[in-house]
Amino acid sequence: MGKYRVVHYINQFFAQIGGEEKADYRPEAREGFVGPGMAFNAAFGDKAEIVGTVICGDSYFNENLEAATKEVLDLIKSFEPDIVIAGPAFNAGRYGMACGTVASTVEKELGIPAITGMYVENPGVDSFKKDIYIISTKSSAAGMRDAVKTMAALAMKLAAGEEIGASAEEGYIPNGIRVNFFEEKRGSERAVDMLLAKMAGKPYTTEFPMPDFDRVEPRPAVKDITKATIALVTSGGIVPKGNPDHIESSSASKYGKYDIEGVFDLTESTYETAHGGYDPVAANQDADRVLPVDILREYEKAGKIGKLHRYFYSTTGNGTAVASAKAYAAAIGKELVADGVDAVILTST
């Protein structure tokens, strides 16, 4: 098998053309490696080789973003690479933005894997960490040796189409995708080590940084509830007896939509729960305890509400990924709006 063809993207400084005074240097392609490319070639061994280097000044790139991206991309394409490496940019902000743009555009438009490397505080990290693998580096070029080693290893895996491990194993900056892997020590021992460090005021790294949850503006209140159509939605897994849609007891892959026209009470013989995350006995005896159809029918008859919507929607919230729940809810919401529903009662277990 031949060697993988690598194209390396670097700025004017690492190409030894000049510093800030040369930052408006226009895109240029050279055969073979330039500057730090030598170290990469050494790290690749006989697996890969830098066939070409594309150089661009940081100011030129960032001030002419669209044009420069296209020029650089065309030059990269001309070398027919298997993989593209940009940088590492360490803590240089404009270089980081350039590397991130080049690498992500190469993946998106050329369909060729691309990686870069940056210091975690480089503004390029937040902009691109979800799009491409960014190897975590030191803040200055003093960290070149380590950066090259880690970047070369990941680049070879990507070129070969191998499965990419967790960020902690591969050395990339966490990108929000959680990947399983086996640690050296068991969890309890890691917890003891972490606690000892925390109590001593020494540095430690949490294995799961706390998330930020986004918010939605509250919708206006219902003006006249006696004329409103109200729909019932539940994550408590209430389904017709026998679970006709086979909604999973945990990690639901779907939601159900059920017609309750003419249904006045959910009974033990007609409805049950498919939810695997709680004691199901009470809900199976009387599903109104989770989905209050009986009382809403009563209120409908008494004119306290306009109407109970003809369908209810149900899924199991148990172990179901937020992204799935989000997608189901968005689809349900759209249907309810189209059906002229005015408000929703959502019950959870």
Binding site: V216, A329, I332, A343, V344, I345, L346, S348
Partner: peptide
């Protein structure tokens, strides 16, 4: 789920036991 239905344009009341999660 509550949030996405609300995002679609409907007021939603979330009836749940574990209020802290809802918050």
């Amino acid at each position: 789920m509550v949030k996405e239905i609300e995002r679609a344009g409907l007021p939603v009341v979330h009836m749940c036991t574990v209020v802290p999660i809802s918050l």
